[in-house]
Computed example of a mutant assay.
Amino acid sequence: MKNNRKLMGMLILSFVSFAGLAQLSTPPGGGSQKSYVKQHIGGVGSVAISYSSPGARGRTIYGNVVPYGFNNLGFGLSTAENPSPWRAGADQNTTFTFSHDVKIEGKELPAGKYGFFVAPAAEGAWTVIFSKDNNHWGSFYYKAENDALRVEVTPEDVGFHEWLTYEFIDRQNTSTTVALIWGDKKLPVKIELADPVGAHIAQLTAELNNQQGFNYQNFTAAAGYASSVGEHEKAIEWADAAINAPFFGQKNWATMSTKGAVLAAAGKSEESAQVMDEAIRLPGATAGAIHQYGRQLIAAGQKDKALEIFKYNHKTNNGAWPTNYGLARGYSAVGNYKQALKYMKLAKENIPAGDTLNGPIIDQNIAKLEKGEDIN
């Protein structure tokens, strides 16, 4: 019995000793509270900033609370030979986490998590540092040899700001500017995706390899984006998948016209024409859709082919709107203004009810054709 009591006492003492190492969550004492901000960039990338936010409390910040330059803090690794910058916040390291490779003020920085430090200057630009050290207390253990990137950034004067804050002050499609704001200074740092197209293609690839990849509509959308940014091989691959993939691939106007468009954008005009000749005969190929294809051919300088398409559209859809308009454009493109005028007048007669836009435009085109002028 005595041995059991002795063992129990030892276990309790052991438990209390270990429990004493853990800290309970208590209300903040009014000091430098933890803060966190995150901004998405380019639809796929992001930058997240974790920091502690001290207050100014009427103090002179720069040159006093925050000394200029690099300094010997007299603790840790901070010495005269290895001076430290400012921790750009309070308490533990301020950190920046980038989901993708970025450019900071035009200089490349790989994706990852970095400690953020600043060396202010009394005049001119400040040194901004992204360090591989990201889990220390303050800058006592800062090592210059672990810098991943240094850039020079010029601060701006602002109205007095009590709490140190990181704020995204500019947000563009593929870039953002974050500002450190405290006291009477604002330090803006521009961040942009290093390869926004590559990042988006990678994101689309990952999604199409997941649940999103089980319908042809997503593949046609992805093919259209890839084509628009010059990723032609990827665009053709995805357009083919929309048509031919097992289970969900479909051959219809949407998928075939997408393939025709990406082939044309890739400079494969003959292949594109063959695909589109089949596409206009498939479900979903409306008179309006075929009309727009004819207009694209005119814009591409393929005038005879455009007239051929307009003739097919008129015959197949029995002169429905806008097939007369299309024939007028097709004949005008090849210089046959007499025939163009004939069909433009027919187009005026079958303008859809409620359409107030095309009437005045058709009148202008009739006047041009009567003068022997092209309407395209």
Rank of each mutant, 00 (worst) to 15 (best):
G112D: 01
K113N: 05
K113M: 08
Y114T: 07
Y114S: 05
G115L: 11
G115M: 09
G115T: 07
F116S: 01
F117P: 06
F117T: 08
V118S: 04
V118Y: 00
V118T: 10
A119S: 14
A119E: 10
A119N: 06
P120C: 15
P120F: 13
A121Q: 09
A121H: 08
A121N: 14
A121L: 12
A121Y: 04
A121T: 10
A121W: 03
A122Y: 06
A122K: 14
E123P: 04
E123L: 13
E123M: 12
G124P: 02
G124C: 10
G124F: 04
A125W: 00
W126R: 02
W126S: 00
W126G: 02
V128H: 00
V128P: 03
V128Q: 04
I129R: 03
I129S: 01
I129L: 11
F130V: 01
F130D: 05
F130A: 02
F130L: 05
F130W: 01
D133I: 06
N134P: 11
N135T: 13
N135D: 15
H136C: 10
H136I: 11
H136Y: 12
W137M: 07
W137S: 07
W137N: 07
W137A: 07
G138A: 09
G138C: 10
S139L: 04
S139P: 01
F140C: 02
F140H: 06
F140D: 03
Y141D: 15
Y141V: 07
K143E: 15
A144E: 15
A144P: 08
E145Q: 13
E145S: 14
E145N: 12
N146V: 00
N146M: 09
N146G: 11
D147G: 09
A148M: 08
A148V: 09
A148C: 12
A148Q: 09
L149R: 02
L149Y: 00
L149S: 07
R150S: 13
R150D: 06
V151L: 01
V151I: 11
V151C: 05
E152K: 09
E152Y: 05
V153C: 11
V153T: 11
V153K: 02
T154S: 15
P155R: 04
P155Y: 03
P155G: 04
P155A: 03
E156P: 08
E156R: 14
